[in-house]
Nucleic acid binder design. Structure first.
Lengths: 255, 255
DNA sequence: AAGTGGTCTAGACCACTTT
DNA sequence: AAGTGGTCTAGACCACTTC
């Protein structure tokens, strides 16, 4: 059996062997990712076993394994020995703090309470539109909220979402919901945040932020501008957070 | 040949089979890491080929491969197809920005100029000693420097180093040196920074920082507290940086 | 041509979970 | 007992670099 799967001379090209000459395991990684994107398996569910996928794609188990290893490294799936491989979900405690890096200087990190100030549909400002890769003026959802740690307001978030993906997202629906926002997006709207980029700055609190966060105007705040992406690196959320960092800090590890 | 290497009944235990029952490839990863720590191969040099290492450790090439894959994922080594596997170094451009996350809002990122304000040996304050895992009062090197981007002072760093590891580090030696500080530490003192944790906050500039950074007292600054580690997770550096973020930002990716 | 890392296969056995 | 992911081996061939 030839080891090279990329169209050995004479063999009819299968569905895997397109014009691109990527390694087999990367092609299979792409195929599995597309199935995940299509929702063929829902968050929390098991995907087929390595043997089944190997049979489906007509490759060896080792090749499927390498593809799934890469997906697990990107947190798209979670491996559990003896049980199977599962679609990652924002509901499992393991994922809670991957997108919330604010940590108390002393004591344990625990999930904050959310208080929503507003949630309405607006036209995208040009800057937001650029980041979301849509046209200025297109419909977006704008929401503002405060995160409370031990009852104290610490974070003020301003969040823009692609309007087309979040129809029916209302203030009422938000206030009913407990737990991380990305869990709601995943369960109620079928949009899974996979990855984000952030830009951090120190700024002074403006009058409005100062009022909401109950600090003096001009107080130094940590500004965090985030763009979040779903499958295929499609941007779906833009967020601007202002953090009070007198008793909390943004934790980061340089690998 | 039995697939399980962990002391099959009757077989005499080799050097790899200690009391710990870790997978073979992890044991080999540890052994290679210890060789790197001992300086058996210097930064920039090639380590032995996979076949050689497989022979040395009496395992298959695939097992060595998995160990090296893990080391490459942690940036301890760099793989180059057709050439070999090389000990990572802070001198290659690839590594320059792994520990410098400050990026201009517009334009390309380029390496800043360093200006050293002081460098002297002092006794470790208790807080620094705790982070460096040494005793309060032990000798440490304290240095302060400014980083200039396009000629403008943007970063003020205060750096503490374990005294025992950096004998002979003087202000003169620093000012002669061009390029990243971690490159000097690696070449001149044999200390390689592998990994770091950072805590970010927004603070107001105090009088001294304001003077050095040429801003008004109270200006919001991004405070970055870093602890850097070498092999074996030994802390060797504590650093406190103050960043002006009016035209730069701290770039972070949430994987 | 020789040597290196990169991919792929096939088969074995292990550790863990569920039935 | 059966099924899952996890480890290990042995061997083949490919892509790339150097001699």
């Amino acid at each position: 059996m030839p080891a090279n799967p990329n169209s050995p001379a004479g063999a009819p090209p299968g569905p895997l062997e397109s014009a691109t000459f990527l390694p087999l395991y990367q092609q299979i990684k792409t195929l599995i990712t597309q199935s995940l994107d299509r929702g063929e398996w829902k968050p929390g569910e098991a995907i087929p076993s390595e043997m089944e996928l190997a049979a489906r794609f007509k490759v060896s188990q080792g090749t499927v394994r390498k593809a799934i290893d890469a997906l697990a490294a990107e947190n798209l799936v979670v491996r559990r020995q003896g049980r199977g491989t599962f679609v990652a979900t924002h509901h499992e405690p393991r994922a809670q703090f991957r997108f919330l890096r604010l940590t108390p200087d002393e004591g344990e990190q625990h999930y904050p309470e959310s208080r929503f100030l507003e949630c309405r549909r607006v036209r995208a400002p040009s800057e937001v539109a650029r980041l979301l890769d849509i046209k200025a003026g297109d419909a977006v959802v704008l929401m503002r909220r405060v995160l409370l740690f031990d009852g104290a307001p610490i974070v003020l978030d301003e969040i823009w979402l692609q309007g087309g993906l979040f129809k029916g997202l209302t203030a009422e629906r938000l206030s009913e919901y407990k737990g991380p926002l990305y869990g709601l997006f995943e369960s109620e709207f079928g949009v899974r945040m996979l990855h984000a980029t952030e830009k951090l700055r120190a700024v002074g609190a403006d009058a409005d932020s100062a009022r909401v966060l109950e600090v003096e105007s001009g107080t130094p705040l940590l500004s965090v501008e985030r763009v979040s992406f779903t499958y295929g690196n499609r941007p779906v959320e833009v967020r601007r957070g202002l953090y009070i960092t007198s008793h909390h800090h943004y934790q980061n590890d340089l690998g």
